[in-house]
Design a protein around this nucleic acid. Structure first.
Length: 276
DNA sequence: CCTTAGACCTGGAGGC
DNA sequence: TGCCTCCAGGTCTAAG
């Protein structure tokens, strides 16, 4: 589920639940979840650390502890759950952090694609291994039409691939890339070099609208977050094309088409989204 | 340099 | 019901 907005919802929720909580034990059930680039020994170094601050960069969670940064990527299906007493057991829970107050923070990941690791707190965040290849985050001021145009104008690849390229803009995933192309009335297969400055300004404008609205919608589900099931970014925004194959386009009524672009499922309205 | 196929994993949906 | 194939929020690596 997690693209940038869902990760933001998760970070906000974790910040509420875990601020200054102390880790007293870590049960690493599936060791491959820990990145090879992590400082070791992972479980031992976490003991005694407190969660101090919480942020998101692209699709990464950055949890700052007393002495380290714990960086997590949820990939396709990673989720965090917090249990007050007993864990609701599952074979998909791969890491359990026991907190001093008795709560358990569980990392759940059906496909085991997610990764987490410990990194230096001294180094600037952007220089840490998992983050240094990222471009501007989608919420940054400097991430504007000019920036996007400068990045993608020279590229031969198509618009969809550029939106998914985390070294250009960090935080956009497949669902939102489809929605952004639809709202900008642009065919995802357009070559980047054919896009004007005006197109790029429009793309960024729609991108910020869609992603920020998604965060707000996710934010509404935070409130009914209770204790047992916890912290999963619930994607509640109204999608216009993603997953809507065969349904009428909200603009013109023509059936939404599904194609493959860059090995990813891509939904579009052939009438509304111009190819150039 | 760039694009693309494959790998990493599991489970749900749909066809037969 | 069972078996098979395809597909899914992502990213990295090797091959072409």
């Amino acid at each position: 589920m997690p693209e940038g907005p869902e990760v933001q919802v998760v970070v906000d929720t974790l910040a509420c639940a875990l601020k200054d909580a102390k880790i007293i034990d870590v049960d690493l059930r599936y060791p491959k979840i820990v990145s090879e680039s992590s400082i070791q020994p992972f479980t031992e170094l976490l003991k005694g650390q407190h969660f101090r601050s919480f942020e998101r960069i692209g699709k990464y969670l950055v949890l700052t502890l007393d002495d380290y940064r714990l960086i997590c990527h949820l990939r396709m299906e990673g989720k965090f759950y917090i249990f007050n007493n007993e864990i609701q057991e599952s074979k998909h829970i791969h890491v359990v952090f026991t907190l001093e107050d008795g709560r358990k923070l569980c990392y759940h990941d059906t496909r085991k694609f997610g990764r987490m690791g410990l990194y230096s707190k001294e180094e600037s965040i952007r220089n840490l291994f998992p983050l240094k290849k990222l471009g501007l985050d989608f919420q940054e001021e400097a991430c504007n039409g000019q920036y996007l145009y400068a990045c993608i104008h020279p590229l031969k690849k198509n618009l969809k691939a550029a939106l998914l390229d985390q070294s250009i803009i960090a935080g956009i995933g497949n669902i939102y890339a489809n929605e952004i192309c639809f709202e900008a009335h642009l065919d995802p297969r357009i070559r980047c070099s054919k896009l004007s400055k005006k197109d790029c300004a429009l793309i960024v404008e729609k991108m910020k609208l869609i992603l920020n609205k998604a965060i707000q919608c996710g934010g509404t589900t935070i409130r009914d977050y209770t204790s047992s099931l916890g912290v999963s970014g619930r994607f509640q925004i109204q999608l216009k094309v993603h997953g809507k194959k065969g349904e009428p386009c909200p603009n013109c009524g023509q059936a939404i088409d599904k194609i493959v672009v860059g090995q990813r499922g891509t939904y579009l309205c052939r009438k509304c989204q111009k190819r150039k």
